[in-house]
Simulated scan of single mutants.
Amino acid sequence: MKPWAGVGEAYASSYAALCAGTTDALAAELGPASGRSLLDVGSGTGMVAARFAADGWDVTGCEPEATMRAVAAREHPRLAVIAGSLPDLPFDEAAFDAVIANFVLNHVHDPRQSARELARVSAERVAATIWLVSPSWLWHEVCARAGLEPVAGERLAPDKDFERTAEGFAGMLRDAGWRDVLVSELSWTWHAEPAALWASAEGGVASAGAFYLSLDEAGRDDFRRAFDDVCADRSVDGALALPHTAAIASGRRG
């Protein structure tokens, strides 16, 4: 996994709500709970897992980052969250009726091996999501106004990477041994308050946050001024309208 050390509180205050936007679509792919067991891999602060638990699933979360697990324990004390990460999950084969990984396979070093591991611990259904459209343009605009050159994001080795389209995602999952793969696209607009977006940057969340923390004091001041300018120009009723598109995949173990 790419490092997310120490970002639990900042993520909870920002992108956790955005990433939970796929919950209904994931639930539709898996069918009714009916007392079935579900593993949420990369469960983060527990928002998605808690929703599945409320719908009647017997849910276990699995999250490698301690600060994420700490937020989950505080916000969802009844939710069981185990420390663990892809591509080696601490569970037996077919241990859960269904397994989900929400915006996880776009962060691992070996997506196919990780997708194979998701299927290994599933007895029935497996589902995952990745971003097709994210708000990276916003942070590029901030950098441009600040006169800063953003660092290129980490790229996977060519033999590990896959095309970040619905078709490319489906092909990667089939390579990993998933059967009956179906992929759909879900688009929605996140109306984000500037305070939430700034919490993500200041807290080191995702590539924009990592870039902000890498700057010296003068660079951070320039970044903040540019961020405030962009928000002033683009906010409507105190929020920025940020369109997003996710690929939602489901299948069965091979």
Rank of each mutant, 00 (worst) to 15 (best):
V7P: 03
G8K: 12
L18E: 12
A20V: 00
D24T: 12
L26P: 04
L26F: 12
E29S: 14
E29I: 08
E29Q: 14
G31K: 04
P32T: 01
P32D: 01
A33G: 07
S37V: 04
L38C: 10
L39E: 06
D40C: 02
S43E: 00
A50V: 03
A53S: 15
W57H: 03
V59C: 14
E65D: 13
E65M: 05
E65Y: 01
E65S: 08
A66V: 09
R74M: 10
R74L: 14
E75C: 13
P77Q: 07
R78F: 14
L79Q: 10
V81F: 04
P87S: 02
P87E: 03
P87V: 01
F91Y: 04
A95N: 12
A95T: 03
A95P: 11
F96K: 06
I100D: 02
N102P: 05
H107Q: 10
H107Y: 12
V108Q: 08
P111V: 13
R116D: 10
V121G: 11
R125K: 15
L132R: 02
S134G: 15
S134W: 07
W137T: 07
L138H: 04
L138K: 03
H140V: 07
V142A: 05
C143L: 10
L148Q: 05
E149C: 11
V151H: 13
A152S: 14
E163G: 12
A170Y: 00
A170C: 05
L173Q: 05
D175S: 08
S184I: 04
E185V: 06
S187K: 01
H191I: 07
E193I: 05
E193L: 08
A196H: 08
A196P: 02
L197C: 06
E202Y: 06
G203K: 00
G204L: 06
A206M: 03
A208T: 06
G209E: 02
G209V: 01
G209I: 03
A210G: 13
L215F: 11
D216V: 03
A218T: 10
A218R: 07
D221V: 08
F227W: 11
F227Q: 02
D229A: 14
D233H: 12
R234A: 10
A239R: 14
A239Y: 00
R253C: 09
